[in-house]
Amino acid sequence: MQSITLDLKDEQDTVNLGRQLSALITPPLIIYLSGDLGAGKTTFSRGLIQSLGHEGAVKSPTYALVEPYELNGIDVFHFDLYRLYDPEELEFMGIRDYFTTRSLCIVEWPDRGHGLLPQADIQINIKYVDTGRQVELKAISPKGEQILVSLDNNAKKQ
């Protein structure tokens, strides 16, 4: 499966990556975001969600667990599972109802929901490297593979 590693020098590069990815996606799609606190998971999500048409702030849904957006016929659900104590809590919130044919689900801290979340199409890991970030994008499904091939081809054209 396709894998891409990118070096991002600042916050704007992280936002731009989200924007670039937004141009290539169609529902249904599941993106897992992993990385240390403050690494840029929500910053990436902001670029993606705003590029899909959301005007205004994109905040981390740390306490609510999920922030919904309806954007141009796409149900976008931004999850932050950092404060999840037991994956069973996801059952109580009806987690399966969020993953539909109309939805883009962005899941921060997906390891906290292990066993109850559907498989991701794309796994993104963000880590600190000096003052910048290194982002590894991995395709997990054939749809994720198509998206990352397109992203890589677009990057080579620039």
Rank of each mutant, 00 (worst) to 15 (best):
T14F: 06
Q119S: 14
I124P: 10
P87T: 04
L48E: 02
N125G: 11
E145I: 01
L151Q: 07
P110N: 08
N154S: 13
I124W: 07
E11F: 05
G56I: 12
L21V: 14
G113P: 08
D86H: 13
K157D: 14
F79C: 09
L52D: 01
G47L: 11
I74V: 13
G38C: 11
I49T: 04
D152A: 14
D111G: 07
S141A: 03
F77A: 02
K9D: 15
R83D: 10
S103Y: 01
V15G: 01
I147C: 00
K156A: 15
L48H: 09
N154L: 15
E89K: 05
Q123F: 12
Q12M: 08
Q134E: 15
K127R: 14
T131F: 08
L84S: 02
I74Q: 00
N16V: 08
E67K: 01
L6Q: 12
E11N: 01
D10Y: 09
T26R: 12
G47M: 07
D130S: 10
I106W: 04
L148Y: 10
L33F: 06
S22E: 10
M93V: 14
Y128S: 09
G144Y: 05
V129C: 10
N153F: 04
Y32V: 05
V58K: 00
Y82N: 08
P87S: 08
L71N: 00
H78M: 11
I147V: 14
L137R: 03
V58W: 08
I126C: 02
Q119A: 14
P118F: 06
Q20E: 10
D10F: 01
E11R: 10
I95C: 06
T42H: 08
S60I: 09
S150W: 03
T43M: 06
S141W: 07
P142R: 04
V107P: 03
T42Q: 05
Q146H: 13
V15I: 15
I122C: 00
L90D: 09
R96G: 10
Q158I: 12
Q2W: 06
Q146K: 14
S103N: 09
A57S: 14
N16I: 04
M1Q: 04
R96L: 11
A139N: 09
G132S: 05
G38H: 11
A155Y: 13
F79W: 12
F92G: 02
L90T: 06
L84F: 03
G38A: 08
S103K: 09
E136W: 07
S141C: 07
A23S: 13
L48W: 09
E108P: 10
I140N: 06
M93L: 15
L24Q: 04
T131R: 12
S150P: 03
L71D: 00
